[in-house]
């Protein structure tokens, strides 16, 4: 039999060949317009002096001037690099101070997140059965709560004069049993003046810790559930104590998740903005003690109206984040 007719396919508006590309295109279109293009444009802008509103023709070529202006290296006496005066000089320069603040808050808020989340997750994983979901939900709640709303409440709680936190802390500190105050060394007996600038970064760090410790706990808990039970059974047969099981099984098995969670914390804390911004009412606190780099960048753009410099800050910060992420990869990444 000899085939005679060759069928023409019905016309469809979407052929099988092109459908996948059409289906994935929304992301790429949106990213090109609202992600890639502005990014490239900001590289360009960072080389100019520009207020962001006047026509593009008004842009003034600066070259790397904006970057040098941000880094503010002139006048630093590098021969005195090991003296306190040198670092005070560095701290007085906006970009470096903001970077220092970011790192300080990042570490003081970030490290305890993991140091507490890991044992907490292990404890919840092994000890809780029925109450587990409830406990977890409570710890997770801060993570999904509107930052602005809850941070404003924290502001009230940290008030020196009427603040609940002072009342609670001094209450514990002054608590006496037979004329002896057992907690007076660990807790304050007098109200703490939380409004002093030295306290501001601590408050920010506490709020950040409070928001994310539950998130990290949940991450570690999820990882714990994937550890095969027979590892522990084998260890118990060998007579390993719970502590040795933790050190020799749990921690090594958690390592990929520790890497992942620390990376998330690192990237998140380096772009810290909402909590310090709201806690300090957008000012960065007295003497900008809690102004993070992202806040500094926005201040340069919105208050100073200097979009060229703000873009330069963004890219300097980006390089810094990239550097730290790379270092994190070198140090913590599990080797296979």
């Amino acid at each position: 039999m000899q085939p005679t007719e060759r069928n023409r396919p019905r016309k469809r508006w979407l052929s099988k060949k092109w459908a996948p590309y059409v289906f994935v295109s929304p992301f790429f279109i949106l990213f090109a317009i609202f992600g890639l293009f502005p990014l490239l444009f900001s590289v360009y802008v960072s080389l100019f002096r520009w207020d962001g509103v006047s026509p593009l023709s008004q842009m003034k070529w600066e070259g790397f001037g904006n970057y040098l202006y941000v880094l503010e290296l002139e006048g630093l006496d590098f021969r005195t690099v090991f003296t306190q005066a040198f670092w005070q000089d560095v701290y007085s320069r906006d970009f470096w101070r903001s970077l220092y603040n970011t790192l300080w808050i990042g570490v003081v808020a970030g490290l305890p997140q993991h140091l507490i989340a890991i044992p907490l997750a292990v404890f919840i994983h092994t000890q809780f059965r029925r109450a587990r979901n409830g406990i977890l939900a409570i710890y997770f709640l801060p993570f999904i709560t509107q930052t602005v709303a809850i941070v404003l409440v924290f502001q009230a709680l940290f008030s020196a004069k009427f603040g609940v936190i002072n009342s609670l802390l001094t209450g514990i500190g002054q608590w006496e049993v037979a004329g002896f105050a057992p907690f007076s060394l660990m807790f304050p007996t007098e109200p703490v003046d939380w409004a002093r600038p030295q306290k501001t970064p601590w408050i920010v760090a506490f709020v950040v810790w409070w928001r994310y410790v539950g998130w990290n706990t949940v991450l570690y808990l999820a990882a714990l559930q994937t550890i095969p039970k027979d590892l522990y059974e084998a260890a118990r047969v060998d007579g390993a104590s719970p502590w040795r099981q933790f050190v020799h099984i749990t921690l090594p098995q958690l390592r990929p998740m520790i890497f992942f969670a620390v990376t998330l914390t690192l990237i998140g804390n380096l772009q810290l903005f909402e909590e310090p911004y709201v806690l300090t009412a957008g000012t960065g606190g007295i003497g900008q003690v809690a102004e993070t780099s992202a806040m500094y960048m926005l201040r340069v753009a919105m208050t100073d109206g200097d979009f060229g410099t703000a873009s330069a800050v963004a890219w300097l910060l980006f390089m810094f984040v990239a550097l730290l992420t790379w270092m994190n990869n070198r140090v913590l990444k599990p080797k296979d």
Binding site: Q2, N7, K16
Partner: peptide
């Protein structure tokens, strides 16, 4: 590939 005497190479599965 032909069904009877019509070549179906270009046709969608449903057709």
């Amino acid at each position: 590939v032909a069904f009877g005497d019509s070549v179906v190479n270009e046709l969608d599965p449903g057709e």
